[in-house]
Design a protein around this nucleic acid. Structure first.
Lengths: 344, 344
DNA sequence: ATCAAGCATAAGTTCAGCTTAGGTGTGAAG
DNA sequence: CTTCACACCTAAGCTGAACTTATGCTTGAT
């Protein structure tokens, strides 16, 4: 019988690219991983890896074996979740990952709700970029995470992670409050009306580039972003999905953004724009309460927040409890402020 | 992560009933099995077994964990089969199990075909009752097996075994050639006409007891078996599906058979009937060439032969080769004799 | 050329998982 | 009721699979 631990190593190798990375993630030495993969290969009777430069890559047989490994490990996760559900009481540590802006919006509310309903749970929050969440979950460093993706930055399908949608919110262009400045009241009116686009499923059609042309209010992305084509831009840090979203949105609007500042914190983006340093993007959640000194323009461009966890783990009581708490938190925020909305 | 080897033990315990039987099947000591199951239970955090008299039975949590174990082990079998397919060439040992009458009908033809197409394969044949095939396959004593079931004896669904249908043949009543005796020619004519019932899917409707009333030719089971109600019967040995089929068929015809002889070999059944010892049942395959001294009556009652193998193993090249060879063998027999038929 | 990254192999070490041995509770048979 | 065999569990010791450490090779960047 194929050894599942070895299949696990093979899967991690497929995901992380090098034996050294696998070893580090699973706190082994590279030697141990190399040996075990060697045994797996011998047992399989088929070459699973081949050297490529100074690393190894999977052969087609190896990749197909990884697909089986995914299925097996997912099912084991499911079994473990079910067992956890059979144990009475929800408690123990729960390691939560979150993208930075989630840390001061959804997470605190969700934690409060979680503590109210399951006092025995010991949640631990760690900030983490969405791109690294999958690795963190698989390595067992995280149990659950808040992640997001943007239009123009398609989330790569990942069979090792399951996701529950939490929130879909429009992005805003933040530009210096200058000539055609918009008052806070005007911005609020725009926001309220814009909720309609969300409900009619317009966001779904906007995920691809060309679809951005048909904006609900008749304003195309090009028309909305165009005035800022020559302005310096403030985007999220290089390598993040927020950065990629900003660049591609501007490209879709027909220009290449001149990026001057790179900061991930949306409050800093707002402050920089207010200081006349350029234009940027913020999600609706960061746009309310309406900050002073900047102009906000709702864009036909959405950010989707989700709860992610190891594939098969959805039935785990602590995971389910967190999903419920996060959903409640989002619903409460949506109900009180009228500014965000649960897509479910 | 749950240890798959331990899940395997749990599954075997569910199937075999005692730790001692599991140990024997997997060539461990009972102590080892007990210890490993103890570890599994501790890791699960939920009682999985409880003592019941001097044996142990699974708790609901244990049984639900077995379902996951089945899924995981099936998938691993699939992975192994795929790897075997990636290794070039079909060869090595192939342990084949067969029900007794298959041993001198389908198996020899299938082996010849197999040897022609895959000379490197080393098949080993072992006779085994269909009821024990599942255990044999799971224990790794068998790779593939010919099995059968009868109308009136529903096959218990088994998630650990996959099956490919091979042959569906009518059963015949064998009665002493006496008063209303039927010549060999007459019997042949009956057989030829009866093939129609097979094609029209009548057999499917006949699997349950009450369905036996609507026979294709207008002859009900009761009408066909009735004349032999008072005759002694020759059935398969107690505890076999053949025995159960005989008893239930007679019960469905409205009488309790008086069983005098119990033999599994259909040629012996024919010989005993010819010797005036009573009546019996034989499948079509044993009814041709038409034996002398007995009367044959085709019944609206079918036997289905299948190839069985470990769930997920269908893609294994040697298994697939055997299935193909057995199918070919059956087709050839059906074509030449016109007496059996592949349901596919 | 030099150096670090990455993988593989050799050798030593450790602990999980096995066997053996012995004890307990259960159910059947005398 | 006693006896005995069966099934399971626990304790103790042993063995080998799987890990670490140490070392060398190849590759690609500086």
């Amino acid at each position: 019988m194929l050894d599942v631990r070895r299949l696990h190593l093979l899967r991690e190798l497929d995901r992380r690219g090098t034996i050294a990375a696998v070893a580090e993630a699973l706190t082994f030495t590279a030697s141990a991983v190399s040996q075990q993969l060697g045994v797996l290969e011998r047992e399989a009777g088929v070459p699973l890896l081949e050297r490529s430069g100074r690393r190894v890559i999977l052969t087609p047989a190896g990749r197909s074996l990884v697909a089986h490994a995914d299925a097996v490990l997912n099912r084991l996760e499911q079994a473990a979740a079910e067992l956890a559900g059979a144990r009475d009481g929800i408690g123990g540590p729960l390691r939560i990952g979150t993208f930075p802006s989630g840390g001061h919006t959804i997470v605190p509310a969700a934690l409060a709700e979680l503590a109210r309903r399951h006092p025995a749970l010991e949640p631990t929050v760690r900030e983490i970029e969405s791109a690294r969440v999958s690795d963190g979950l698989r390595a067992g460093e995280l149990d659950v995470a808040l992640v997001h993706d943007y239009d123009f930055v398609p989330a790569t399908p990942d069979t090792t992670v399951d996701e529950v949608p939490l929130l879909e919110e429009p992005m805003y262009l933040v530009s210096p409050a200058g000539g055609e400045a918009m008052s806070a009241g005007e911005a609020e009116a725009l926001r309220t009306g814009g909720a309609e686009a969300l409900r009619t499923g317009g966001a779904e059609a906007l995920r691809t580039g060309e679809a951005a042309a048909k904006s609900g209010s008749g304003d195309t992305l090009a028309a909305l972003l165009g005035p800022c084509a020559e302005v310096p831009w403030i985007t999220a840090r290089d390598g993040t999905t927020g950065h990629a979203m900003a660049v591609r949105a501007c490209q879709a609007a027909g220009f290449q953004p001149r990026i001057r500042h790179q900061v991930n914190d949306f409050r800093t983006v707002l402050a920089l724009v207010a200081a006349g340093q350029g234009a940027g993007f913020v999600p609706e959640m960061a746009a309310v309460p309406s900050p002073a000194g900047v102009m906000l323009t709702k864009l036909p461009l959405f950010r989707r927040s989700k709860v992610a966890f190891r594939a098969g783990g959805g039935a785990h009581p602590a995971i389910a409890a967190f999903v419920a708490a996060a959903t409640t938190a989002v619903d409460v925020m949506a109900g009180s402020g009228g500014r965000v909305r649960n897509p479910a």
